[in-house]
Design a protein around this nucleic acid. Sequence first.
DNA 1: ACTTTATGTAAAATATACTTTACATAATGG
DNA 2: CCATTATGTAAAGTATATTTTACATAAAGT
Lengths: 66, 66
Amino acid sequence: MKNKIKIHRAIHNLTQEELANKICVSRQTINTMESGKYIPSTALSLKMAKLFGVSVEELFQLERGD
Amino acid sequence: MKNKIKIHRAIHNLTQEELANKICVSRQTINTMESGKYIPSTALSLKMAKLFGVSVEELFQLERGD
DNA sequence: ACTTTATGTAAAATATACTTTACATAATGG
DNA sequence: CCATTATGTAAAGTATATTTTACATAAAGT
């Protein structure tokens, strides 16, 4: 799984902590998600996509292997 | 989280087991997901949405409270 | 009636998401 | 310089997704 969280966070000019607060998770959740260390729940990806005004598919991309 | 898995599974005329095989999870994962007992990972929802030819947003909807 | 197929459900085990706390670092502003 | 802000990282703990096995049931076909 690849993701474009960092890009859309930059577009919206949010820090990891601000984003975390907006979707009610810890900053580490954002940080580790952003660096691809784990795959978030569908609830989280829906919330982030909604906040950024994009689709889940725009924000997260499957890679061969997952 | 609400979902329309059962509907799209019906549209594609797949049993729970067939769907499970296609996205490499157990039948119980499909069954419990379908009945809303837990929220799947983004990888799973992306795979299902892709298989059904719909968006993750079409397949899963946030509810107030999650 | 009997067998098969699809589904619902449930309990225990395992994997993984997510939190909390903490420390390190680079960048910035006083 | 010193304090603050934003980020990276890591370890331990908790919550939850997913698997495996199993049993029950209803529907459909023979």
